Computed example of a mutant assay.
Amino acid sequence: MAGRLHVDDWTRHPRSPAFRGIDPPVFSPNLAPRRWLSILRREADDIVLRDAFWGLTPTWLKVLDQAPHCARAESLDERPMFREALTERRCLVPVTGIYVWQAGLRGKQPFLVTHTDRSPLMLAGIWSRYAPDIGAPRDSFALITVPTTEVIAPMSDRLPAVIAPSRIEDWLSVETSPAAARDLIGPADRELLGAFPVSRQVNDPAHQEWACGYPVGPMRVWTA
C-alpha cells in the first residue's frame, strides 16, 4: 500500500516525459493521501500536467473520506469506478520515492523506496473528475498497486505499479485497449527499486522538511 510519497523536482530530469503545464507542479517531501499533487494525463495530442486530489472521487461520491487512494491491479474489474477509469482515464503520477515501513523492536522504521539511480518513478494511476459543491470541477486519482519484489517485501507487500519510460505513451494513449493496458501493470524489475531508511519524522505528515527523505543508512538493493 502507498500511504506516503516523496515528490522532489522531477521535471528537469532527462528521463521525464515532455508535457504541457496546465497547473504548476506540486512538490513535497512527505505527501499523504487526501492531498493535492500533480498527475500527467493525455488531452488530445498533448500530455498535460494537472493538479489532482489523491483519492478517486467520481461525481456520485459524496463523502471524500470514502475516496480510495489505491486500487489493486488484480481487482480492477470488480468495481465499476476502477474498470471504467482503466478503460478511458489512465494517468501517471511522477514521484521521486514511496515511503514504506518495516516493523522492528523499537517500532516501525520508515524506508524510502526509489529508483536505484534516483531517477523519477512514473506511477500508474487512474483518474476521475471531482465535482465539488462549490467551485470548478477538478481531477482526482488513485494509484494502481501490485505485489512487491523480494527487497521490498519485508517492508510492504504492495507498491504502486511503475510504468517504464518507453511505455509511457502506450499507458496514456486512448488507443491502448484495457487488455493491453493491463499488460503494462506488474511488479517492478528487481534491479529497478532500492530502499533506504529515513528519519522517523516522516511518520507524521505534518513534517514537511526535505530532511525527512534523507538516508540514515545504506540502500537495500537486489543482488543475484
Rank of each mutant, 00 (worst) to 15 (best):
L86M: 14
T87P: 05
T87L: 10
E88N: 13
R89G: 04
R90E: 00
C91S: 08
L92M: 06
V93E: 01
V95W: 05
V95E: 07
I98F: 13
Q102S: 15
A103W: 14
A103F: 08
G104D: 10
L105Q: 15
G107V: 10
V113L: 11
T114H: 13
T116M: 08
D117M: 12
D117I: 12
P120N: 07
P120M: 09
M122Y: 13
M122V: 11
L123V: 05
L123T: 05
A124H: 02
I126L: 12
W127E: 00
S128I: 00
R129G: 04
Y130C: 13
A131V: 15
D133M: 12
I134L: 15
G135Q: 09
G135R: 07
A136N: 13
P137Y: 06
R138K: 15
R138I: 12
R138S: 11
R138P: 11
S140H: 03
F141P: 03
A142Q: 03
L143D: 07
I144V: 13
T145L: 04
T145Y: 06
V146S: 03
V146A: 04
V146K: 01
P147T: 04
P147C: 06
P147G: 06
T148G: 00
E150R: 15
E150V: 13
E150T: 13
E150Q: 12
V151K: 00
I152H: 06
A153W: 09
P154S: 07
S156I: 01
R158I: 06
L159G: 04
L159N: 03
L159H: 03
L159A: 04
P160H: 07
P160R: 02
P160C: 04
A161I: 00
A161Y: 00
A161W: 00
V162C: 10
V162P: 05
V162R: 07
I163M: 04
I163W: 00
A164C: 08
P165K: 05
S166R: 15
I168S: 04
I168C: 07
D170I: 09
W171C: 05
W171A: 01
W171T: 02
L172M: 05
S173C: 00
E175I: 03
T176P: 05
T176A: 10
S177C: 06
P178N: 05
P178D: 09
P178W: 12
A179T: 09
A180F: 09
A181D: 04
R182E: 15
R182G: 08
D183H: 11
L184N: 02
L184I: 00
L184V: 00
I185C: 11
I185Q: 07
G186V: 04
P187N: 02
D189R: 15
R190P: 05
E191T: 15
E191V: 12
L192S: 11
A195R: 06
P197C: 01
V198C: 10
V198W: 03
S199L: 08
S199W: 03
R200P: 03
Q201V: 14
D204C: 12
D204Y: 08
H207P: 01
